[in-house]
């Protein structure tokens, strides 16, 4: 079957920023709609890359190179998509909770979500509950992601959710939690909507949360 976007997917796989940006412009000049380039080319292309990584055929540095190429293409498409009133595939606020400074997992989730076409607001580390609430009020994300790596800071996840609930903002967002001491039972106990055991599965879970809430 002739895949109109075969070359887009191949350049994405190779992580070739320059050639992909050039091809994106060429496609737009040929009157291919920006939305189609995104939904039939780039997003399925990143999906293939996700499968390659899952199967051990690609490592993270290569995946991130592809995500970088995706970003170059999105930089060209986003202004057009916004003009047409088409939003990004989702907006997420991420942070490592107060008292914890571990962040490589969170950073990885952020990079991979950006690679999937989402807008990521990263609050950093040692984030107090109030700052998450402020971010919800300012940015109106679809999802809030909480990360913790210590048995003592995982309880701060519960406090954070309580602060958000007490402010009446709980219904405005879906909440996903992650980190070594956390599991899905804990996530359910503290009132989170989802749990992801690693960065790769976090992307799928976030997409699910956004789709199911649409």
């Amino acid at each position: 079957m002739n895949d109109e976007f075969r070359e887009v997917k191949e350049l994405l796989r190779l992580g070739d920023n320059q050639k992909l940006a050039h091809l994106t412009k060429q496609l737009l000049d040929s009157r291919v709609p920006a939305q189609r380039i995104l939904s039939e080319g780039l997003i399925p292309g990143m999906g293939i890359i996700g499968e390659l990584m899952k199967n051990g055929e690609m490592y993270l540095p290569d995946v991130l190179q592809s995500a970088g190429a995706m970003k170059s293409a999105l930089a060209i498409l986003n202004p057009l998509l916004q003009q047409q009133g088409i939003e990004s595939s989702g907006k997420i606020v991420l942070g490592t909770v107060k008292g914890d400074m571990h962040d490589i997992g969170k950073n990885l989730v952020g990079i991979m979500l950006q690679g999937a076409g989402m807008e990521v607001i990263d609050l950093g580390v040692n984030v107090p509950p109030e700052k998450y609430l402020e971010a919800i009020q300012t940015h109106k994300p679809h999802v809030v992601g909480l990360s913790a790596l210590l048995t003592t800071t995982m309880m701060t996840m519960k406090k954070t959710i309580e602060v958000i609930s007490n402010a009446g903002a709980r219904d405005q967002v879906k909440i996903i939690v992650g980190g070594a001491p956390v599991n899905d039972r804990f996530a359910a106990e503290i009132g989170a909507d989802a749990y992801a055991r690693d960065a790769a599965s976090a992307v799928g879970k976030v997409k699910e949360l956004i789709t199911n809430n649409a």
């Binding site: 990584m53 899952k54 051990g56 490592y59 993270l60 540095p61 490589i104 990885l108 690693d198 960065a199 790769a200």
Partner: peptide, 12 residues
């Protein structure tokens, strides 16, 4: 950190 990322299949 590198070792843990290899155990998740992320790094060689």
């Amino acid at each position: 950190t590198a070792m843990q990322l290899t155990s998740q299949g992320m790094l060689p």
